[in-house]
Write a protein that binds this DNA or RNA. Sequence first.
DNA 1: ATAGATGCAAAGGGTTTGCACTTGA
DNA 2: TCAAGTGCAAACCCTTTGCATCTAT
Lengths: 123, 123
Amino acid sequence: MERNTRQREVIKQVFESEARPLNPLEILDLAKVSLSRVSVATVYRAIKELIEEKWLTPVKISGQPLYYERDRHHHHHHFYCESCCKVFEVEGCIPVKKLTPKGFSLESHDILLSGRCPACLKQ
Amino acid sequence: MERNTRQREVIKQVFESEARPLNPLEILDLAKVSLSRVSVATVYRAIKELIEEKWLTPVKISGQPLYYERDRHHHHHHFYCESCCKVFEVEGCIPVKKLTPKGFSLESHDILLSGRCPACLKQ
DNA sequence: ATAGATGCAAAGGGTTTGCACTTGA
DNA sequence: TCAAGTGCAAACCCTTTGCATCTAT
């Protein structure tokens, strides 16, 4: 990312204003609000470069496309709303080490909570 | 699944003998050992029907294709080997409820441990 | 001016589907 | 026999890539 183009500016704005993990299609749709012409390719290319810059980091949600969020270098987990498919950050963690089976070497872990988000519960 | 075809017999055998979650490609490759002609389509169709019969259940591993395992109706989690990409069952669980943010309704959770399996550690 | 970034469309992977052929009961 | 099941190839969906064009510097 060596140039500040309107497209990348808008893609970054989208992350700042949504403040939650987004998948490529969500990014594209949100970017289109401010930008008449954006292509998927640009979104994917911007994601790739923003990850290299450590501005974004991928969020793996079981059974879903990859989501991306601001890379704030802190350990946390996620909540996936089964109703609107939005992903939210979850603070805190719990020790999972004791679950590791004998003979296996644990390097990392992910905890994904699923259910309904406040907005969907209100409906 | 109204008929017992050689293909489906072999696909079920593969799950019994491997005793771990498998993805469609793994199933196909393992089935080809016993069967000269098997197509991906058959594997996918068999998976779909075995899920309806509750003989299989999907295992969602973030950022990976769907895996499937015998549906034994018991709560457990998984270990993903970053080296060989094999998935293993992990017994036990830990309470995650307290992580749920205020206003959200928790319906389920997944814990994925990642690292190296015994076979890969030996190499 | 010019290398980097974009849009479009084509190409890749993994999964699904249509259709004529095969096969289990 | 004959409908269910299969293989093959085409179709899909999501992601990546090639290339001519555009644009930030």
